[in-house]
Design a protein around this nucleic acid. Structure first.
Lengths: 211, 211
DNA sequence: ACGCAAAGTTGCAGAGAGTGCAACAATGTT
DNA sequence: AACATTGTTGCACTCTCTGCAACTTTGCGT
C-alpha cells in the first residue's frame, strides 16, 4: 500500500484527501448532514479548517470524496462507445459517476452515506449535470457516425445530444432516487451497475409508449 | 391598483414582497449576482435584513420573486389535462414555472434578469424539480386513464410518471438554456410559451429516432 | 549534501448567509 | 378602548468561504 511511483508529495496529498473524506463521511453517518461542520471534519482529519478548502469545495464534496481531476481525466480519455446511442450515453454517465466518487476502496462507506443522505446523491447528479457541455459534446461526436443523425447540421446534433443527455440523466436520477429509498443491504458495485441497466430498459419501455 | 378586498396587512405584505423583489432584481442587473448582498437589497427595499428572510429564503428567490404559496395553490388546483401525456406534462411544468415567478406585472424585469444570469434559471428549474413527488403524483393519476398504462400497478405508474416528468424537465431545461444564450429582444410571454412548444416537438423528434 | 524554488499548511481577519430570540409596533377584532 | 394576532427589527451567534502572509515541507539541480 505504498505506490513509490508517485513522489512523497503526491502520496501525502492523497492521504490527506482520504483522511478528510473518511472523516466527513463518518461524521455524516454519526451526526447527520447539517450537524457536521467543516471544523469538526478538519479536527478529525487533523488538518486546519483552512486546509480543508485546499482539498474540497464543500463538506458535501468531502463526504462523497469527489475528485475533480479524476473526472477531468475520465472526460479526456479516448473511449469507444456502444453502437446503441442510449446504451452508450448511460455508459458514459456511469463512468463519470464512478470517477466522481474518487477512491474506489471506500466504496462501502460512500454507499452507506449516500443511502442515508439522498441529498448527497442529488448533489452528485448536479455535478454531473454541470458537465453538460463537455458530455453533450462527446455525444454529438458520436451522432456524426449515426445514420439517423448524420445528415443534420452540427447544431442539430448538438441539440439532439443535449436532449438525449438530459433525458438519460433524468432517468439515472430517478433510478438513484429509488435505490435510495430501497431497504438496506446488497449495496455492491454490481448492484449499482444493475440499477443503471434497469434504468435504461425502464426508460425505453416508457418512451415506446408515450412518444 | 389597490385591492381593498384584502386587508391592509395583506396589501402591505404584498407591497413589501414586491419592493424586495424589485430591489433584488435591479441590483442583480446593476452589479451582478455575487456582488449583490442581502444587506444591499434590504437597504434599497427599506426593510431590515432580518425582514428580508421573512419573505424570501435566499437572494436568488428574491430576484425571481418566487412565491411559494402561489406554487402550492397551483399544485392543489383542479386541472384538466391534454389527452397527450407529453403535452399535458409540459403544460403542467409550464404552469408551475409561471406560478413560481410570482407577480405577473414584473415579467419584463424578471426575464431580463434571468437572461442575464442563467444560474437563476437553473435555480428555478431545481425548485420545480424539488416538487418531484407532487408532480409525478399528479401525472401518475393521469396515467390511470391512459390505455397504455391502465393495466399496470400503481407503482409501475408512479415509476413511469417519474421518468416522464424527468425527461420533460430535462427538455425544458435544455430549451431554457438555449433561450438564455440566444440574443436579446423578443422576450415576450408568448415567446416563452413558444419555447415550451418547440421543446416538445424537438423532444419527440429525437425520441422517435433513438428509442 | 546544500540551497533554492515550488508546493503545501496554517492562522488570521473579514465578508456574507442564515437563525433564534425577545422587544416593540402595527393591524384586526370585539 | 382593550386585547390578540401578526409583522418588524436589532442583537448575538454560528457557519461557510476567501484572501493574504508567514511558515514548513518537499523536490531538484548542482
Amino acid at each position: 500500500m505504498h505506490d513509490s511511483s508517485l513522489g512523497l508529495r503526491e502520496r501525502k496529498r492523497a492521504q490527506t484527501a482520504e483522511a478528510i473524506h473518511v472523516s466527513a463521511a463518518e461524521l455524516a453517518l454519526e451526526r447527520g448532514l447539517d450537524a457536521t461542520t467543516i471544523d469538526a471534519i478538519s479536527d478529525r482529519a487533523d488538518v486546519s479548517p483552512r486546509t480543508f478548502f485546499n482539498y474540497f469545495q464543500s463538506k458535501e464534496d468531502a463526504m462523497l470524496g469527489i475528485d475533480e481531476s479524476a473526472v477531468a481525466a475520465e472526460l479526456d480519455r479516448e473511449r469507444e462507445h456502444d453502437p446503441d446511442v442510449l446504451v452508450a450515453v448511460f455508459d458514459l454517465i456511469y463512468a463519470v459517476f464512478e470517477a466522481s466518487g474518487g477512491n474506489r476502496t471506500r466504496a462501502d462507506l460512500k454507499r452507506k452515506v449516500m443511502h442515508e443522505h439522498p441529498q448527497l446523491m442529488t448533489r452528485q447528479m448536479v455535478r454531473v449535470a454541470e458537465l453538460d457541455d463537455r458530455l453533450s459534446g462527446i455525444i454529438a461526436g458520436w451522432l456524426v457516425d449515426d445514420a439517423r443523425f448524420a445528415e443534420g447540421s452540427d447544431e442539430q446534433r448538438r441539440d439532439a445530444a443535449q436532449i438525449i443527455l438530459g433525458v438519460c440523466l433524468a432517468t439515472v436520477r430517478g433510478a438513484m432516487k429509488k435505490w435510495a429509498s430501497a431497504p438496506r443491504g446488497s449495496n455492491t458495485s454490481a448492484e449499482t451497475r444493475k440499477n443503471f441497466d434497469d434504468a435504461v430498459s425502464a426508460f425505453r419501455t416508457v418512451m415506446e409508449k408515450i412518444v
